[in-house]
Nucleic acid binder design. Structure first.
Lengths: 338, 338
DNA sequence: TTTCAGGTGATCAACGTTGTAATTCAGAAC
DNA sequence: GTTCTGAATTACAACGTTGATCACCTGAAA
């Protein structure tokens, strides 16, 4: 079937180790020998057996990439970027989906797939501080998301609080007074929902506007459906808001849907700002003004950090915080007040 | 570090082969021995080294899943389903992205990743009949998409022609006369664009309506952006259509965007039907009427077919054609003509 | 008591690769 | 011509697992 070092060696008339040396660019091979071997490799279409190499080397050349839901555009787009970044580092990506619960995420860490990978890029939603031991036991890991475990793990985090504060300030500066927040999870002390709400709260406070729980819509997970449902709840509580800060873009699109259902036009009646800058935000109606949390660099930073960690397990934990920026499109309309 | 059969054997006071027998449920192991071994396995948290097992067995337990673009919702959702289906078959999925060209897709077939997988589920867009030899050389493969290679390969195909014809007939029956087709690729003889246009054409012909090239918008690839651009082209050619059949949902959403840009309301002025039934179709505005090509079963059928092919390379090629249906939502409004 | 069958367990050789170390070889220096 | 040096090549032993084979032991039948 597939040819091996031995087959090539026999054809080239050298020992199989010499073939191995050629394959691995060992410098002390005579040119004449090298070309003989290369010709044989060519003729037999030899490709190294990666399982054997992995066994010998103790490395597989694969990394895991685990996210809560691949069907969420943000994660799908991130997966595509991680696969590309990994390819540049000669790594292959094994994409995994975690069941959305603490147990489900712990399972990712102990999955048999951990034995197939040299490391893991992981965006947990439910893990807590007490899970650090298990994280550390899972081998090289780079965490995505928020700075849950400062100083103890490699992480690529979003500036959730600052970015959310910035988005809310933008709505305030453009004259909005009643700004709804969609996507909160009041029962959870950490995580994106918490930090994005915190940024929203800070902006309100700085502007001297009272935080009003009636304007806060809870939503988990963060699908369109949940955004629409959450928006409906808020609308059901009384006077509609004049703006919405949604904690991610899919929520924002769901919220827009719910607003349109009751005849509120975006941005004429209600402005909307999202978070993530998924591709779709450019083509939604209206085109979505949103926070870009440094997307283009997240995948590359994560892969680089993981490669470094794999090479040197003792390296001091590294925290990357890519810059965010607001992408202004058409879902916000300035208000003037008399 | 990680413990091996030998470590467990030493602790349990048996030979390492006995441990292997326990792990592999070899029947002739005394209960007493078995429990001793299991206790040792437990204590050392032994997990088999999958690389070593792969090397020995000649199988990796991984399958490849290759699609043109993971960031397209249809493929992202499909990937999630394939990963789940594979898990049920005790298989791990290695997700890959093909560069959108014939060369890029051939590269998938000869990639070093083929050496890491037992088989491949592949949705090519650009391969041709003459590439069959390379497909066959790539080991067990199940093709997704259209019936390009009838009888020679395992395939899970969509009923592209029939479903497109059905969608177009639906628009005709609801009183539409000028139906645009968005997503054609007139330069390519096969593939989804070709077959979906063919279905559209058949429906028109059966209804005695002339096929009008001015109503056909070309688009590659099938992103929102392309749908919007293609729609604008068609609109620029003269009288607007009263309906649009878009060859997939993202194109449909882009087309809706372009229609709204010029003040045409969907569905009041123009009806729109899509293809794929991606999640987003439920939450777009308006909610999208679309063809569901049998999504729920495609992933499972593909994984099952691949598992079968891996187990028996000589099996006769199998063609699955899941049923499609039209999901009626809110993007179509019946027209009455005086 | 002996024989035999079959349950139980151990020995050994792969699978295909790479690191270590030993060996051969060619050319230069004496 | 001998010796030395470093380049070029090879032998061998892992890596951790499973299949084939062999050896042992126990209990039942003769």
């Amino acid at each position: 079937m597939a040819s091996t070092l031995h087959d090539v060696a026999k054809l080239a008339g050298v020992s199989f180790k010499t073939v191995s040396n050629v394959v691995n660019d060992y410098p002390f091979v005579r040119d004449q020998t090298r070309s003989k071997v290369l010709a044989a490799i060519e003729e037999l279409d030899y490709r190294p057996n990666l399982q054997a190499r992995s066994l010998r080397l103790g490395r597989t050349g694969m990394i895991g990439f685990a996210v809560p839901e691949l069907s969420l555009p943000y994660f799908a787009e991130l997966a595509a970027q991680v696969i590309e970044a990994a390819q540049r580092h000669d790594l292959t990506v094994l994409t995994e989906q975690s069941i959305p619960s603490r147990a489900g995420e712990l399972e990712i860490l102990s999955s048999p797939r951990r034995r197939m990978t040299d490391g893991l890029i992981f965006n947990p939603l439910w893990l807590e501080d007490r899970d650090i031991p298990q994280l550390e036991a899972a081998g090289p890991v780079v965490l995505l998301g928020e700075a849950l475990f400062p100083g103890t793990m490699d992480q690529v985090v979003m500036r959730n609080v600052e970015a959310s504060r910035y988005a809310t300030e933008y709505l305030l500066e453009t004259g909005h007074k009643r700004i709804a927040a969609i996507g909160a999870d009041l029962s959870k002390p950490g995580g994106s929902p918490h930090f994005r709400l915190e940024g929203y709260r800070q902006a309100l406070q700085a502007a001297g506007i009272a935080f009003d729980l009636n304007l806060v819509g809870e939503a988990t997970p963060w699908h369109r459906l949940d955004g629409a449902r959450s928006m409906r709840h808020v609308l059901g509580r009384g006077d509609p808001p004049d703006a919405v800060f949604a904690f991610n873009d899919t929520l924002a699109l769901g919220a827009i849907h719910a607003l349109q259902e009751v005849g509120l036009r975006v941005p004429f009646d209600v402005s909307v700002v999202g978070f993530d800058d998924i591709e779709e935000a450019q083509y939604s109606f209206p085109e979505l003004t949103t926070i870009n949390p440094g997307r283009s660099s997240i995948a590359e930073l994560a892969v680089t950090a993981l490669a470094r960690r794999i090479a040197d397990r003792g390296a001091v934990p590294h925290l990357s915080e890519p810059d965010f920026h607001l992408v202004v499109r058409k879902s916000v309309m300035p208000r003037s007040h008399s």
